[in-house]
């Protein structure tokens, strides 16, 4: 769905020739160190940034070329879980989940309320329906945001670091929720994450980015065994600088120069 994508901020090239294809019913993980372009890739995928070169197709349609009702219709078929939830602070959790339903369906308020309760129950957040986002914890906000992303039963779900800042138990619960959604609804899920435990649990296929280019794009097991130093250091949880053997202060001082 992403073809030869090039992304630039001013003169800086952030992504250079990235290709990404996601099959229905698979969880695709985008990996890489900080600043490698993962979030930029995601923003292109969901239509927030137009590509400098290349194209993005969602569900067979060119997202960035669409306008008006056609674009809106396509966007209703995708869901997005933002890193911090991005729930609207002035609305209750229930109202947040109801928002896409009210905007894009002609369902009665009573039916919408039932759907909202179903979605909140799905992420075990029924008790928070009338609370404001500021009144719940970060993990609960993410679960509520997942309920909102799922409000219209999308075919494609994007998640930006869903486990970031969560305790291991909450993170595990969120992973299991994603797996359940994939298994029951057959949706495709694209996840940007750093969490090794989470990747191991959910990833079907992985694309590993480095400095805006894909280093590996394969099944999780194959990428895990990839011999590129940056990838092996990532999975070995060792800093790449250390793997590359940057000189220690002792070596520099005793050898007489930087």
């Amino acid at each position: 769905m992403v073809h030869d994508l090039v992304a630039r901020y001013g003169a800086r090239t952030i992504l250079n020739g990235v290709n990404l294809r996601v099959e229905p019913g698979e969880i695709r993980v985008i990996l890489g160190g900080s600043g490698c372009g993962k979030s930029t890739l995601l923003k292109h995928c969901i239509g927030l940034i137009p590509p400098a070169e290349g194209r993005v197709e969602l569900l067979g349609q060119p997202l960035h070329a669409l306008e008006g009702a056609a674009r809106t219709a396509l966007l209703t078929r995708i869901g997005m879980l933002f890193q911090n939830g991005a729930l609207l602070g002035s609305l209750t959790i229930g109202e947040n989940v109801a928002l896409p339903l009210e905007a894009h369906t002609d369902l009665s308020p009573a039916v919408i309320l039932e759907i909202v309760r179903l979605k909140l129950a799905m992420v075990e957040m029924s008790h928070a329906e009338h609370l404001l986002p500021s009144e719940i914890s970060g993990g609960m906000r993410k679960r509520a945001a997942l309920a909102r992303a799922m409000a219209l039963d999308p075919d494609l779900l994007f998640c930006d670091e869903p486990s970031a800042g969560l305790d291991p138990l909450t993170s595990r619960e969120l992973d299991e929720t994603l797996l359940r959604l994939r298994d029951r609804f057959g949706m495709a899920v694209v996840v940007v994450t750093h969490e090794l435990a989470s990747i191991e649990t959910i990833a079907d296929r992985v694309i590993f980015l480095s400095a805006g280019r894909p280093l590996a794009d394969d099944t999780y097991q194959r990428v895990r065994q990839h011999d590129h130093p940056e990838i092996s250091s990532f999975f070995a949880r060792v800093a790449a600088g250390e793997m590359r053997g940057g000189p220690s202060a002792l070596e520099v001082l005793t050898k007489g120069g930087h």
Partner: peptide
Amino acid sequence: TMQVSEEIDALKVMGL
């Protein structure tokens, strides 16, 4: 505040 906390991005992605 909505801009920096990605709430406006969320609206756009929801087709609003």
